[in-house]
Design a protein around this nucleic acid. Structure first.
Lengths: 266, 266
DNA sequence: TGAATAGTGTCTTTAAGACAGTATATC
DNA sequence: GATATACTGTCTTAAAGACACTATTCA
């Protein structure tokens, strides 16, 4: 296990002033792969409980900058699409005695008082971030034992209230899907109709009529059909499509834009 | 001007531990009166700038409890309808030198260091609250010179980023209007069709066809027509209506509920 | 009886939803 | 030509939108 430098650690656990107290950022990073929506989770040393990515807020940065910095530190990617969706705060939300004890006993190379600010009541400003799964090489932090993708539909044991945070992030994502071209963030640049169809089915958790979906999708006017196909083996090759980001920005500005895809039935 | 007790004040400005650091709650309290949407604002001593109601979070309470406590302290009413809509946080958002200077010089009866936690970088978790205008007797706090209603369409000079916070609250309210019976919170128990019609026009900032509005409103099934009318002078007396709160709760739980009123065109 | 406001019905247009057959690629 | 997947067109149904007249109150 990699130890952090002692002086740095001591400063950190005293919070000599780099970070805000009692408030932090959690960032639920979503990716899509293999017809499954996935979320990037990390696990602290010595514990069999996972957390969403998150961290403290520097005095010199905004909460959005903090969320962006956290996403970058775990995915290596800049300027990902992210959205604030809710804040969580209650005296009980980070009470986890097992975590505190293990953290103190086993993980750290420096003495940390049990009443250190890091175990304090924290309000969490929560964001979700969308990223293309295939571009990400998850990178764990110094204080974590692991950082990896988990299917949203099959999560490991979660620490604190993080299972609820993921549930809320998913709810927000499902709402936003009607107003943002979510596919742009989660798919590769060129994608097929069946791929984006399946993405929407996965996120919404229900099946969507393929004919109506295609009709609606093309009606948005922000998708361009390319003159190429993708080879998929012993079957008809699907055409490739891409987003017309320019047209999207226009529509998005005038508020006339609506994917109208939320209401699609089965 | 009412001075706060010295020892209490000193404790407060040192923050001996009652409140969370670097994070607080702002609560945009809306009321409706005289065909105008109003917001409850307060003004600190010696300044000609106003703020939305807000405050610090006690270590013993959740952010929702803090928002509720703040609403109660200004309106005297309990259990009002409120919704969290966004959090704001950036190193610059509460930088207002005039405020800091005047506060230090003129307002307080105790010495406050210029680097006191209250002038620090604060993340604000923002809520809006709805209340029936006629029930409220605005009550100012000890550190304010005034607390009163202002029309949303004609605000006084606002401190910090509070004009933006109100704008965002209004945006959220307009979105929520399609899914919550906003009228229940803003109107008196019994109301007329023209009254609720005008409320929706005010909140959405556009005119709504009266025939279609009535049709849609009654189609929700959560409004009961009473066998009484309201005398309004030399004109036909409108019938009174009230919300069927029970039916609303049902519909609201099953997610089948939708006022569908957002899309009403002129 | 005139002035002001309350209240309601019908037709048109548009969008949602259901549904099934043809096309293409490979073996 | 068998099989697996891609692709698309039409009809039905429901909701949104436009529109104008009758009803009541009281000065």
């Amino acid at each position: 296990m990699q130890k952090i430098i002692e002086q740095e650690a001591e400063d950190f656990f005293k919070n000599s002033g780099e970070f805000l107290r009692n408030v932090g950022v959690d960032n639920v990073i979503f990716g899509y792969h293999d017809k499954e929506l996935k979320v990037l989770l990390q696990r602290p040393f010595s514990l069999d409980k996972w957390t969403v990515t998150g961290g403290y807020i520097k005095r010199t940065e905004s909460i959005e900058e903090a969320a962006n910095r956290i996403a970058f530190s775990r995915t290596g990617l800049k300027d990902l699409f992210f959205q604030q969706f809710r804040s969580f705060g209650s005296p009980k939300r980070v009470a986890d005695e097992e975590f505190t004890a293990k953290y103190l006993e086993e993980v750290l190379s420096v003495p940390v008082p049990a009443d250190s600010w890091i175990f304090d009541y924290f309000v969490s400003v929560a964001f979700y971030t969308l990223t293309e799964f295939s571009k990400v090489q998850p990178k764990k932090g110094e204080l974590e034992a692991a950082c990896q993708w988990w299917p949203v539909s099959d999560l490991p044991p979660m620490m604190f209230d993080h299972a609820m945070i993921i549930a809320e992030a998913l709810k927000a994502l499902r709402l936003h899907i009607a107003h943002y071209p979510i596919g742009y963030e989660l798919l590769e640049e060129k994608f097929t109709l069946p791929e984006i169809h399946s993405l929407y089915e996965t996120i919404l958790g229900k099946s969507l009529d393929d004919r109506n979906f295609a009709k609606r999708l093309m009606a948005t006017g922000i998708i361009i059909k390319l003159n190429e196909t993708k080879k998929i083996g012993a079957h008809r090759s699907p055409f490739l499509y891409k987003f017309d980001k320019e047209k999207y920005e226009e529509g998005s500005n005038t508020e006339s834009f609506n994917l109208n895809i939320l209401s699609l039935k089965p």
